[in-house]
Simulated scan of single mutants.
Amino acid sequence: MLEHFLVMMIAILLGTKLAGHLCNRIGVPSVIGELLVGIILGPALLNIVQPTEIVQLFAQIGVILLMFLAGLESDLFQLKKYLKPSVLVAILGILFPMVLGSLVGHLFALPVVSSIFLGIVFSATSVSISVQVLREYNRLDSDEGSVILGAAVVDDIVVVLIVSVFSSIINMGSQLQFDFAFFWNLLGLKFLFFLVIYLFAKFLLQPVMRLASRVVAIESQAAMALVLCFAFAILSEKMGMSDVIGAFFIGLMMSTHPSQPKVQEKLDTIGYAFFIPIFFVSIGLNVEFSAFKEHFGMIVLLTLTGILSKLVGGYLGSRMSHLSKSASTIVGSGMVSRGEMALIIVQIGQAHHLVTGSVYSAIVVAIILTTLASPLLIKYSIEKLGKN
C-alpha cells in the first residue's frame, strides 16, 4: 500500500516538474503540462496513478493551499475597487452557460431536469487554474486579475446557492417547504460565514499572528497561517460553501499583515513542491477516452459552448464595466476554466442519478477540455494585451 502510494507520488512529482520545464521552454503555461501529466499517468493511458481516495485528499489540500496563496498575494483594496465589474462578470458568466448548457442537453435528448443540471454544471468556474497562469505572468493583482478573482468567488457562491436549491427540489419534490430553515441554510449560513471572517480579521488576526511570532518554535507563523487556512476552509464547507472560498478569504485578510512575505515564501515551498502539483494531476486522472467514441458530438458541443459562453459573458461584463477590450478578453479567458468546481457539481448530479454512465464520462471530458483551453486563452490574451 505505502510502496504503491510512494511510486505514484514519485511519478507525479517528476512528471509535473519535467512537464513544467518543457512548457516553460516552449512558452506554454506550465499548468497545461501538469494537467496532461494526469492524463498520461492516469487510467486513460499508462495507469501508473489512479484517483484513489488518498490522492484525491492530497489534491484537495493542494487546491485549498493554492487558493489561500491566491488570497495572500491579492490586493484587498484592488478587489474592493473592482467589486461591481466582478459581480457583473459573474452573473453574465452564469447565465450564458446555463442557457447554452441546457440547450445542449435538450439537443441530445436528455430529460428536462438533467438538461437544466447540465447548464448548472457549466455555469461553475474554477479560478485555481487561472490563478496559476496569472501568477506565472505576474498579473494576479492587475485590474483584470482582480476582476477574475472577484468574479470567480461571486460565481462560486451563486452556483453553490443554485445547486443547493436544485438539490433540495430534487430530494424533496412536492414536499419542499420554503420556510425559515430552508432560507437559513440557503442564505443565513453564508452571511454568518462572512460576518465571522470579517470579525476575526478585524479583532483577532493581529493578536493571533503576534502570539505565533512569540512562540519559540520553527516556522511558528507559517504553521499558524496553515491552521487558519484549514480552519476557515472547514468553516466554509460546514456553512454550505466550497472549502476554497474560506481558504481564499482568510488568505485575503492576511494579505495586509506584516508577516505576509515570510508566510507566502514558506507556503509557496510547501504547496508547489508537493500538494499543488497533485491537484493539477488529479484533474487529468478523470479522463476516459472511451467517452469520445460514444458521445463525441456531445463532448465537442459542450466544450465549444462551455468556452464561448464564459468567454462572451466575461468579456461583455468587463466591457460594460469600462475595461479595455484586451483586459476584457483576459477576464473572459480567465473565467473559462471549470476544473474542480464543475467536477464536484457533476458528482452531485451522478449521486442524484441526473447524469449516469457514459454521459457522466462525456461531461467530465468536456469539463477537462475547457480547463485545458483556459490557460492557452489567457496566455494569448495577455500577449495580445502586451502588444497593445
Score class of each variant (00 low, 15 high):
Ser328His: 01
Val159Ala: 05
Glu53Met: 05
Ser321Arg: 10
Phe58Thr: 07
Ile91Cys: 11
Thr16Arg: 10
Leu226Asp: 06
Ser236Leu: 10
Met320Cys: 07
Gln175Cys: 00
Leu192Met: 13
Lys80Leu: 10
Lys262Ala: 13
Val31Ala: 07
Leu304Phe: 15
Phe279Cys: 12
Leu46Cys: 06
Leu88Asn: 13
Ser324Asn: 11
Ile218Lys: 13
Leu161Arg: 00
Leu199Arg: 09
Leu65Trp: 01
Val281His: 08
Pro375Ser: 02
Ile12Leu: 08
Thr125Met: 09
Leu228Val: 05
Ala70Ser: 14
Phe178Gly: 09
Ala201Asn: 09
Ile120Leu: 14
Gly33Thr: 05
Val31Arg: 03
Glu144Val: 02
Tyr380Gly: 00
Ser168Phe: 04
Lys80His: 10
Val263Lys: 02
Met241Asn: 10
Ile48Gln: 03
Ile348Gly: 08
His353Lys: 14
Ser381Met: 02
Ile276Arg: 07
Ala152Gly: 14
Thr269Leu: 15
Asn388Glu: 15
Pro207Thr: 05
Ile54Ala: 02
Ala291Ser: 15
Gly145Met: 00
Ser361Trp: 00
Arg319Met: 09
Val147Lys: 06
Gln221His: 01
Gly38Cys: 09
Gly313Met: 01
Leu88Glu: 11
Phe68Val: 04
Val215Trp: 10
Thr329Cys: 08
Ala247Glu: 05
Thr269Val: 15
Ala11Thr: 09
Gly246Met: 08
Gly349Ala: 04
Ile368Arg: 00
Ile162Pro: 03
Glu288His: 13
Gly71Ile: 02
